[in-house]
Amino acid sequence: MTPDTRPADLSADAWERQEAAMSCGDGTYRLIADVLAEPPASYLGADFAREIERRAYGLRARDVSERAEATLACLAVAILCVVAVGLLMSPGALAGLRPMTDGGWMFAVVGGLGISAFGWRLQRPMPHA
């Protein structure tokens, strides 16, 4: 149902008269009001709320584990990329002749963290409502 459902085509007077009839006027309307005020018998068991909690927290744990998994995967990719880039930036390191520069290491660490954070973000549960 959307807000553009058939627009109101009801006069204020008709609404007021019916409202009054529901509370104190017409016997049939009063009967309808009585029945509408009856609760339908509930069908939810006593343990419904507990079961939902179990499932909800279970889903929550799964969300966290999924996030951790994605983070690790991204971290692995990040390490491979950073090592490759680092090697390109410091050609000597390829042959083990000289270590990577400080800038290279900084680049590697920041890049790895950035890509891992992307993995965490990627798995963030989306709001549904």
Partner: peptide, 11 residues
């Protein structure tokens, strides 16, 4: 109802 509450929890 279950679905609604689980959805509410996620949101």
């Amino acid at each position: 109802c279950q679905e609604a509450f689980l959805r509410a929890h996620r949101a």
